[in-house]
Write a protein that binds this DNA or RNA. Structure first.
Length: 573
RNA sequence: GCGGGCGUAGCUCAAUGGUAGAGCGUCAGCCUUCCAAGCUGAAUGUUGACGGUUCGAGUCCGUUCGCCCGCUCCA
């Protein structure tokens, strides 16, 4: 029987067996950072190597029957800050945020709406100078305010300019205000109206005037914080940047600011020309890179799912604009199939095409974006992102062409395209390549693999089993002398040496002679070691060993000299 | 960042304001011929950290760090 997978149990096992530890643990930890232990490191390396092998070294066959062309790259984590200006990570694409100085809450500026609500009785009582206007406020004007359509209100109220001025110069308002967080003005009104209605301060006529805070002048201070309701505590909208800053050199002035990369992709774009010039690649082709990226996440959460330092496996596949759809569909299906091939075979993996309204800034014009998603225990029954396959169009290449001043020099050249010249050969075509980006999270992959592998079988004496795909298993095999005497340890040592020589570069080969055989099997189950070879009395007489299978706990006997062959076959080597 | 919960050995958890413990795991030895067996022994804690109240704090109070859940965020 199998219990529902619990994140707590998994985290606990990861700690106990040395997959993942909290970073800086002896100093109380550090929010959003994790260290990988002996088993976790090997697991991560194996996943990374599988990706590299299957994309760069042994690339898949493309839609036209030829192997696709992928080359590797390892770009620097810190780049010229201009890279991030060109990419949009610094500046324009940072959402302006509003902070409350008191309660420290933070809101997206375009989602905060402030409203002025008052009763006319209260208004005119407090501001007798407006009394002459009392009979001039019409139903239409009120509706315009409630709609809310302040421009319309202003148009209708041109004849009572003092009232318009009064409302616009909000810093002088001394009647109650409300602020709400909503995705649009209509929603904001719907939220604000009951608040207004519930307030005892409002009698008689009630009005709600709603604006986006973003449009309001800086001195429009009294709008209260939607969270703590205190007035005058909100900052004006300001950009909030998720990139880690650092300084180059010892002086640490503003001029020395640099950023840790928030994605590996830009390192590929800015080396596109270098790779084109030096590696004899021809369009279409891809550049692959594995490496760490850093994002100063507001809320790191869910184990290693969203951490501030993480690892990506990204590929930028460059192609002619006309072929973008073909390659997008190819990579989307290819990547989905790859995750299945390394063991995510269950119903917890899905491919999801993005709706048009959730596309990234660069992907609006493209043929689409799709996510490979995994049902992590903490997202269940929903899914969380594992890899995104995006058509980034030529956005990035154009940005870098512009910002670097290289212009057309960053274009690709395809000699097989263009008009046919007199000699019968095409003249070739220069163009900014379109990019299909399969961008996977290596650390998220590790998490998905851990979740998928984690199995409880309470029928067994050792109920926790990590059923890693043999290719990813950090420990490839274990060799046990059944008892620690009678020459069995010697046979075991010899076999270990042989297996290490043949398979040691793919993962650990363990041996252990202590304690009962059952306990040793149980340890290997938790480490996810797929095969245990046991040397027993029979081995000494007939040169056969027992192979014990992790997933079934079943056993078979094979000859000692065939062990390496058997293991190689099972590991797919 | 807010709200709620939590923090004691490697793990899971005990301990009225009064001597910090158990189980499992780990390690050593014995035993052991196939699934966490048994026996003997050992190591492991500034009770997350700092401060306060108290004759006395794991326990009460404050601050801080970290983890979990819900908001928020995730370009």
């Amino acid at each position: 029987m199998t219990d529902a997978k619990s994140m707590e149990d998994l985290v606990s096992l990861c700690k106990r067996r040395g997959f993942v530890y909290p970073a800086s643990e002896i100093y109380g930890g550090l929010n959003g950072f994790w260290d990988y232990g002996p088993l976790g490191t090997q697991l991560k390396n194996n996943l990374r190597d599988a990706w590299w092998q299957d994309n760069v070294l042994c690339p898949p066959t493309g839609p036209d029957g030829e192997p696709v062309q992928i080359v590797g790259l390892d770009s620097s984590i810190i780049q010229n800050p201009k890279v991030w200006e060109a990419s949009g990570h610094v500046g324009g694409f940072n959402d302006p945020m509003i902070d409350c100085r008191e309660c420290k809450s933070r809101f997206r500026a375009d989602q905060v709406f402030g409203g002025a609500a008052w009763s006319t009785d209260l208004l005119f009582k407090k501001h007798p100078e407006l009394e002459p206007l009392r009979n001039e406020v019409s139903e239409a004007q009120l509706r315009a305010l409630v709609q809310p359509d302040f421009e319309e209100f202003k148009r209708l109220s041109a004849n009572i300019q003092p009232l318009v001025d009064f409302i616009e110069r909000g810093s002088r308002l001394d009647f109650p205000l409300v602020s709400v967080v909503a995705s649009n003005a209509e929603e904001a009104v719907a939220v604000a109206q009951p608040l207004v209605a519930a307030s005892k301060q409002f009698r008689g006529l009630q009005l709600t005037c709603v604006h986006s805070l973003e449009d309001w002048p800086d001195d429009w201070a009294p709008c209260p914080c939607p969270n703590c309701l205190r007035s005058g505590t909100l900052t004006s909208p300001r950009p909030f940047n998720l990139m880690f800053r650092t300084f180059i050199g010892a002086t640490a002035t503003e001029d020395d600011i640099a950023y840790l990369r928030p994605e590996t992709a830009q390192g590929i774009f800015i080396n596109f020309k270098n790779v084109m010039d030096t590696s004899r690649v021809k369009m279409p082709f891809g550049i692959a890179q594995v490496g760490k990226s850093f994002r100063n996440e507001v809320t790191p959460r869910n184990f290693i799912f969203r951490s501030r330092e993480f690892e990506q496996m990204e590929m930028e596949f460059f192609c002619h604009p006309d072929e973008a759809r073909k390659w997008f569909e190819f990579w989307r299906d290819q990547r989905m199939g790859w995750w299945k091939s390394i063991g995510l075979t269950g119903s917890d993996l899905q491919l999801r095409q993005h709706d048009s309204d959730e596309l990234s800034h660069y992907a609006k014009e493209g043929v689409g974006t799709a996510d490979v998603e995994y049902r992590y225990p903490f997202t269940s029954p929903d899914f969380g992102e594992l890899e995104g396959i995006a058509h980034r169009t030529d956005f990035d290449m154009r940005q870098h062409a512009e910002h670097s001043g290289l212009k057309d020099k960053l274009k690709a050249f395809d000699p097989s395209r263009g008009e046919i010249a007199k000699n019968g050969q095409p003249k070739g075509e220069r163009f900014f390549p379109h990019v299909i980006e399969p961008a996977a999270g290596l650390t998220r992959g590790v998490l998905a693999v851990l979740c998928e592998a984690y199995t409880r079988d309470d029928e067994r004496a050792s109920p926790e089993i990590m059923k890693f795909h043999p290719r990813l298993a950090p420990t490839k095999a274990a060799v046990f002398p059944l008892v620690n005497k009678d020459g069995m340890p010697e046979v075991a040592s010899k076999l270990v040496a042989e297996l290490r020589a043949k398979f040691g570069r793919f993962g650990m080969i363990e041996t252990d002679a202590k304690q009962s055989i059952g306990k040793r099997y149980a340890r290997m189950d938790e480490a996810g070691c797929p095969f245990c070879f046991t040397i027993d009395g029979e081995t000494l007489s007939d040169q056969t060993v027992t192979v014990r299978d992790r997933d079934t706990a079943g056993q078979e006997r094979i000859s000692l000299e065939r062990v390496a062959e058997y293991l190689g076959q099972k590991l797919g080597l």
